[in-house]
Structure formats: structure tokens, C-alpha cells
Design a protein around this nucleic acid. Structure first.
Lengths: 325, 325
DNA sequence: CTGAAAGCGCTAACAG
DNA sequence: CTGTTAGCGCTTTCAG
């Protein structure tokens, strides 16, 4: 592997000139440039980013921390984040926490260790101070770390509102919510508080079933739904996640209850499986593309020292009609 | 941010001693170690990986090139690759090619630019020589680059065999295969050639519908299936991907044809959506965990210069019973 | 327009 | 057991 030194020697100029030439910074005479180009070609020279990065004190990499890449919502989100970062010339490092705090911690530490230039986090088992003590670029989705860390999330409150309205319009009289614990208040949990509020205002009895916040697999939801089978059999409306909705459907479909006549099911997220699913799941849809764009745009501003940052960005959600409500 | 210099100064030793201490390499007296630990604590010193990596000529990062992270199969694969790499102390960089060759090319170039220490590739729009000219660690899944690049893939031939056997056992008399073009021979395409072979041996008429190899979204398959509606309505067995199977089911379900009585559907991959799906899709399942393990294990050997490498590894597939065959 | 030289922060002989 | 020193390969002043 040839270095900038070899190029300089062959082109009979100094390494400083070569550096200027390959970076298009500062003046380089036509003659010098020609000789350098030729030398580069001859030697198959490619710049060593490792050295460049040490010198420039950057890495060109952003870490994205998520709970579980196997969950299609995060797959979609990361895909879009990667596409956005790529357009800014940045690379994407993925960090699955799979629910364990030490993995999350170690990935956060990458900032201090100068492995990444910034972090977009979607996961959080950790205490806030682990994040807030770091003074490098962090953008958070769905967890409020206070005014120092930009927070970007879907308009979950409106999501809860839309969900409640749809249930009411559909004539539900007795509903249940199934989802991650929301005793800890996060933007994400507002979907439930708002949903509950609207229903209570309309005198509709409502029950809740809590799920572990970091478990979102289909088998888990199937098991959870089974445990509460009796409860679920006696209501006429259920508000849960996409995965929960599908799991639930399978559970009740064979019991002779008509969907949506006897029971309305409403999912949340709007992942593509809701459309693939038969029946198509009615749900509240988050805009993963827009979320990705905003996260990346914001972390880029943080890195560039751009002052013009919105520290709280809320992305619209929409109702997506399906066959279950 | 403090450096090794600051620590050395505060601990009143040389930077070499500090380096030895933090790396546990070479001898360091108890006394020195104590002073160093104290200095590290006092200064909140954290090693700068950027500098360390330049010095050690490594990056600790593996790039994983895939067509589309939104596809659940790749989501699952990458998740498992990340978990494996993490256990070796390596980080994972994701590279979505989304079917475009320049993105794939640029990510391959990361090897030459010393951004990553190795690449696991699942994508390939590019000519072979782009890969083969590189003499750094590359592991391929599903594309044979010749003897210099380890190839790891599912036993697709057996997958095709199992699929054919199941169709025959189920009494199919007229079948169609729907999948990525397999005129270019890859390990992955053997599922089709083997399937076809067995069926022909049994005098079963078989038709084929080609899909773009790098498009695997649900909408695409739905559209594709619609185009060939007439064909699909006149067969009694269909072998396709998981996504194709689900798309197909939706298309025919409303037409009064009984599944699996009138029509058997068999998917391929065995992603979790096949289980979530209603009906549960019968399919041939790839072992993503094992694939991930082998890929990572092999690239680690390549990096360490371990001679003991299997250059062609084939992972078992299994039939997964569902409701559609 | 160009080159010398001082870093970036760490590792690894090598001599003591 | 420890310190000196020479890199790793590139960027960036600062004189000229």
C-alpha cells in the first residue's frame, strides 16, 4: 500500500503539495497537479482514512443505537438513516442493545473513545446521566434527556388521540390497551395516556395490559395475549402495537369472533407487515423516512456547530385504514 | 480530553509505561500501576481509539454489505452478525446498497481506504473483479467469487429438493416458481434449478416467473403476481419467497380458491413473518443465526491470518410446516 | 505557489 | 521494570 510519501517522491514534490492536491485545498500549480495525478495513478494510491481521521480529529461514522434490528420498524428506520448519512458522506455503525445495559453503555462510550462522531439513540435502559454527561453530538428519539440533547419523535399524543377517535367512531364500549409500560413518561408513552384520557372523557371503560418495553417480538406478544385471554375475550376494542395486533388476531380468529364486527383491533407503527398481514391491520403509522431525515439532519448540525437547531421536533402520524377497525 | 501524555505527566512516569499499563502488555511495577490508575481516574482519561488504530493498523470495524435492511431476512442476519462481531470486540458498519452499484463500490473501497478491517458481503451488482482484486478480508454469502474468497451459504440445493418433494407429496400436478432471475448461476439460484429438476423427473409441468433479483418488497411482489394472475390461477402449486408467498395468498384468497386444498403455497427463507402471517406460510427455512456465526468466525480467521479456513461452507435448511402446504 | 516541520495520540522496539 | 525514540500516514500552519 503506497502512502502520500511515495506519491510525493515519485512526483518530485513535497507531501504538503500532494495533500493540497488530493484535498483541493490551497494552491497547486497545474504542473505539480499533473505530476501528482500521474504518480497517484501509477502507484494506485488511495488515501488512508485512518491517518486522515487522526489528523482531522473525526471518524466520519455515526453510531445508531437501537433495541433490536430484527424488529422491522427499526430495520426501516436504520435503512433510512443510513441512506441519509450516506448523502452527507457519513457511515453508519449499528448497535443492537438487545435490551442489555452494558451493550448500550459500551456503545455510548464509543463517543469518548473517538470511534464515532455522533450517536443517534433509540434505546435506553441506562440512566439519563450516562447520556447527559457526554458533551458530544447525541440525538435522541423517544426519550427526553433534557434541553441539551435534541429530541425527535412522532406525534404520539396525536397518535393516541386518533386511535381513541377511531375507536369511538367505531362504537367501541369496552376497550383495552396493550403495550410497553408507560409509568415512565416518554414521548412514546403519550399515545397511551392520550388514548386513555379521550376514552375516559367519553365514559368508556378501559383496561391496560403492560408489556416489557424492550421486548417486541411476535412470540412474546402471543404469550402475553394468551395470559390475558379472558380479558381480551370480553372487550370490543384493542389498541396495541402492530406486532401485538397481529398476534392478537391469530389468537381470536379461531374463536368465532368476527373482526372487526365483534372486535376492533388497532395497531401502532404502520410497518409493512400490517399491509402484508391478512387481514390488513388498521393502524396508526409513524413516518420512518421523515424521522430518519430529521435525526440525521440534526446530528449533522450538531457536528458542524450549527446554532440553528430545533431541540424538539415532532413528526406527524397518520391513520392507516385496514380491515380490523 | 486528556491524553496519555497528561496521564504520564501526572503519574510521573513515561508514556510507554502508561501504554503498557492500559494494555496490560509488558511489565509494570505495582507502584507505577497504582499511580497511573490514580492519574487516569483523576483525569477521566479514555484511550483514543483513533490514534491507537492508526498505530496498530486496524480499525476494529467490519462492513456488512446488504441489498436492503428493510427486508426482514437481512435485518435478522445483520442483527446476528452484529452480536457475533461484538463478542469478538468488533463493530459493525451497515451498508445498504439498495441495488445501486456505486454504493456497493464505495463500500468495497472502504477496505482500501482503511475504514474497515474486513467486509461481509451479501450484495452484488458489481463485476467479480471489483472484489477479487482486493487482497483484504472478504467473506461472501451467496455469490461465488472463486477460491480466494470464502463462500458461505445455505444449502439451497437441498432447499429446492425439499420444496420439490413436499410439492410432490402434496400431489401437485402443475406448478410455478416465482423468484429472482436465476440465469446467472449462484448458490442461491440452485433452489430453483434443483426444484425444477426434481419436478421434471416426475413429469410435472413447471412454469417460471422471473422477478428482479434486487427487489424483494411486498408491493413489488404483489404487482408481479397480479401481472401473471392468469397463470397463477391455473396451477395447483407455487414455490416462491416468503414475501412472494404472502403476496400471493392475498391475491388468491378472495377468489374462492381453498388454500391448501386447491393451491399449495411454499415460501423460502423462513423469516418470522411467515409465522406471524395468517395463515402460517409453509416454507423452507434458512438458519440466519448459523450463517451469521460462520461469516463472522471466518472473517476473524482471515483477519488473524489463521490458515485453517473452510473456503466453502454450506448451512443446512429445514422445512417449516405451515397451513399453506 | 511550495516545502519544512510540528502535530494528531498511541504503540513497540530497543537500550538501559 | 522503565524511558527514549521512531514510527503510523496525513493535515496544516508558517516561512519563504
Amino acid at each position: 500500500m503506497s502512502t502520500i510519501n511515495d506519491v510525493a517522491k515519485l512526483a518530485e514534490v513535497s507531501i504538503a503539495t500532494v495533500s493540497r492536491a488530493i484535498n483541493n485545498s490551497g494552491y497547486v500549480s497545474e504542473e505539480a497537479r499533473k505530476k501528482i495525478d500521474q504518480a497517484i495513478n501509477e502507484l494506485d494510491y488511495i488515501v488512508n482514512e485512518r491517518a486522515r481521521n487522526l489528523s482531522k480529529q473525526r471518524s466520519g461514522i455515526i453510531g445508531v443505537i437501537i433495541p433490536d434490528l430484527e424488529n422491522p420498524f427499526y430495520g426501516k428506520l436504520i435503512k433510512n438513516i443510513e441512506i441519509e448519512l450516506y448523502s452527507y458522506g457519513y457511515k453508519t455503525m449499528v448497535c443492537n442493545t438487545i435490551g442489555t445495559s452494558n451493550r448500550e453503555k459500551e456503545y455510548i462510550d464509543m463517543l469518548d473513545r473517538n470511534i464515532v462522531d455522533g450517536i443517534i439513540t433509540c434505546a435506553l435502559v441506562l440512566e439519563d446521566y450516562v447520556y447527559t454527561r457526554i458533551k458530544k453530538p447525541i440525538v435522541s428519539t423517544d426519550h427526553d434527556f433534557g434541553p441539551s440533547i435534541p429530541l425527535i419523535h412522532s406525534d404520539h399524543r396525536r397518535g393516541g388521540y386518533l386511535a381513541a377517535k377511531k375507536m369511538l367512531e367505531a362504537g367501541c364500549k369496552n376497550v383495552v390497551m396493550v403495550g410497553a409500560r408507560w409509568d415512565v413518561k416518554t414521548p412514546s408513552s403519550e399515545r397511551y395516556t392520550e388514548f386513555e384520557k379521550i376514552l375516559k372523557e367519553n365514559k368508556i371503560p378501559i383496561q391496560t395490559i403492560y408489556a416489557d418495553w424492550n421486548r417486541m417480538s411476535y412470540p412474546y406478544y402471543t404469550q402475553l395475549m394468551s395470559e390475558y385471554y379472558d380479558v381480551l375475550m370480553n372487550v370490543d376494542g384493542i389498541f396495541t402495537s402492530d406486532i401485538g395486533a397481529i398476534a392478537l388476531y391469530h389468537l381470536v380468529a379461531d374463536q368465532g369472533r368476527q373482526i372487526p364486527k365483534d372486535l376492533k383491533i388497532l395497531g401502532y407503527d404502520g410497518m409493512s407487515i400490517t399491509k402484508i398481514s391478512k387481514p390488513v391491520i388498521s393502524c396508526i403509522r409513524q413516518d420512518a423516512e421523515e424521522l430518519a431525515k430529521r435525526c440525521v439532519n440534526t446530528i449533522m448540525k450538531l457536528i458542524c456547530g450549527d446554532e440553528n437547531i430545533e431541540y424538539h421536533q415532532i413528526i406527524d402520524v397518520t391513520f392507516q385504514q385496514g380491515d380490523t377497525l
